Amino acid sequence: MNGFNELIHQPLRLKIMAALDQLFEDPKERLDFSQLKEITGATDGNLGAHIAALEKAGYVDIEKRFVGKRPNTALRMTEAGAAAYAAHVAILREIIGDRSS
């Protein structure tokens, strides 16, 4: 199936991409690791591993920074990630018969 993406299809990675997709239009917006953890319900280690897989594929951009004196990890979806996510969502809609897209 053209557009079906095994990397994105994994449930936690799909949740990550869906959350990041909500912010994609504003290039200044990023989602903090803690916010993403709350949205997905994942543990630190599990979330970190899946984010690393998405980063390796070029789908997310990770920014390590400090907020005050505390370290902070913030993410945003890349152009390649947005294209891959959109293609994956389109094929899922086709599979389930959603013609509203």
Rank of each mutant, 00 (worst) to 15 (best):
N2Y: 02
N2C: 15
N2I: 14
G3H: 09
F4A: 07
F4R: 03
N5T: 13
N5C: 10
E6D: 14
H9Y: 04
H9I: 09
H9E: 11
Q10M: 07
P11M: 04
R13T: 00
R13D: 00
L14R: 06
L14D: 00
K15W: 00
K15V: 01
K15T: 01
I16H: 03
I16N: 06
A19Q: 09
A19R: 15
L20K: 11
D21W: 10
Q22E: 15
Q22C: 10
F24I: 05
D26W: 07
P27K: 03
E29T: 10
R30E: 06
L31A: 08
L31K: 14
F33R: 05
F33H: 04
F33D: 12
Q35A: 11
Q35K: 08
L36Y: 03
L36S: 05
E38N: 09
T40P: 04
T40R: 02
T40L: 00
G41A: 03
A42M: 00
A42W: 00
A42H: 01
G45F: 12
L47R: 01
A49V: 11
H50V: 00
A52D: 08
A53Y: 09
A53H: 14
A53D: 15
A53L: 08
L54H: 10
L54W: 03
L54I: 04
E55R: 10
K56E: 15
K56V: 13
A57M: 06
G58V: 06
Y59Q: 10
V60F: 00
V60R: 01
D61P: 08
D61C: 11
D61V: 08
I62P: 09
I62M: 15
I62F: 01
I62V: 14
E63R: 13
E63S: 11
E63D: 09
K64L: 10
F66D: 06
V67H: 02
G68M: 01
G68R: 12
R70I: 04
R70N: 15
R70A: 10
R70P: 08
N72A: 12
T73M: 15
R76F: 09
R76T: 06
M77H: 03
M77G: 05
M77E: 05
T78D: 08
T78H: 10
E79P: 12
E79H: 07
E79R: 12
E79K: 13
E79S: 14
A80I: 13
G81Y: 08
A82Q: 14
A84R: 07
A84N: 03
A84K: 02
A84D: 03
A87V: 13
H88F: 13
V89H: 12
V89C: 03
V89P: 07
A90K: 12
A90S: 05
I91H: 13
I91N: 06
I91V: 14
I91T: 06
L92R: 05
L92T: 05
I95C: 11
G97I: 05
D98N: 01
D98R: 01
R99T: 08
S100W: 07
S101L: 05
S101I: 11
